[in-house]
């Protein structure tokens, strides 16, 4: 069977071409694939579309905003395209206000479900979220069980960058606490899933099959974060 273990992040992202859609999980600074994002930043792919909860935070840690600031991203699809507080002027916000980057604003639950639908082979879904707001304008509406819904389309990706707690050599993954967030659905939604592992990569058979959060069939490349890597 194909070896999925890569020794370095640079090798794991080396073949990523310009123009692809990448998915980057993380919420509240937890479960962010910072080592893979740093490697893609070094690798230099451009014209990327990013899918993430937000477009980068104010701290100086590596996140999606690092790629945005470097001019590698042409469009962000996320649940925040303006600062939650006027003081939170990220590189994305400045570039967006200057029309230097495109964005699509999606309610967070719709964002998650669109990726889940893509991974699950669902051709879209109807949701009551955003009905009656300007985000629903132009979308197909349908009344279901007496309630108005809007049609939302699946959101697939080319690459997903995943931050896991443990992996086995097949790519079965476990997360710790709220590290999980968008990770499992992004792993499903992308064609190629690359994982950075925080704690350890174990041999197959070492993880309890009843305690797997992402099945290894979704996982293509696995890298253990080295001692000098980014652990948050």
């Amino acid at each position: 069977m194909k070896n999925k273990i890569y020794q370095t992040f640079d090798e794991a992202v080396a073949d990523i071409p310009d123009g692809i859609t990448f998915m980057s999980p993380g919420f509240g600074g937890v479960g962010v694939p910072r080592n893979l994002l740093a490697a893609l930043n070094r690798q230099g792919a451009k014209g990327l579309t990013g899918v993430s909860n937000n477009a980068g935070n104010m701290d100086d840690k590596v996140d999606v905003g690092t790629l945005v600031q470097a001019g590698q991203v042409k469009k962000m699809i996320c649940a925040f395209t303006a600062p939650t507080h006027p003081s939170q002027v990220t590189p994305f916000v400045t570039m967006y206000n200057n029309d230097e980057i495109d964005a699509e604003l999606v309610p967070q639950g719709t964002l998650a479900e669109r990726m889940r639908a893509a991974g699950a082979g669902i051709g879209g879904f109807y949701t009551p979220t955003s009905v009656g707001t300007e985000l629903a304008e132009g979308k197909e509406h349908r009344e279901i069980n007496g309630r108005m819904h809007v049609l939302e389309n699946p959101l697939p990706g080319d690459y997903a960058f995943i931050r896991a707690w443990k992996s086995d050599t097949f790519g079965n993954l476990q997360f710790r606490m709220t590290q999980r967030n968008f990770n499992p659905i992004m792993a499903m939604a992308a064609k190629i899933t690359i994982v950075e592992v925080e704690d350890e990569i174990v041999e197959v058979g070492q993880l309890d099959p009843d305690q797997i959060h992402v099945c290894g069939i979704y996982v293509d490349r696995i890298v253990k974060i080295p001692p000098d890597g980014i652990f948050d």
């Binding site: 395209t81 303006a82 309610p107 009551p128 979220t129």
Partner: peptide
């Protein structure tokens, strides 16, 4: 989620929660 004279908005989970 959106204030005047500013591009974009911050929705997060608010629309899902408000609707449901």
């Amino acid at each position: 989620w959106r204030i005047p004279n500013r591009k974009g908005g911050g929705i997060g989970g608010a629309m899902d929660l408000a609707a449901c």
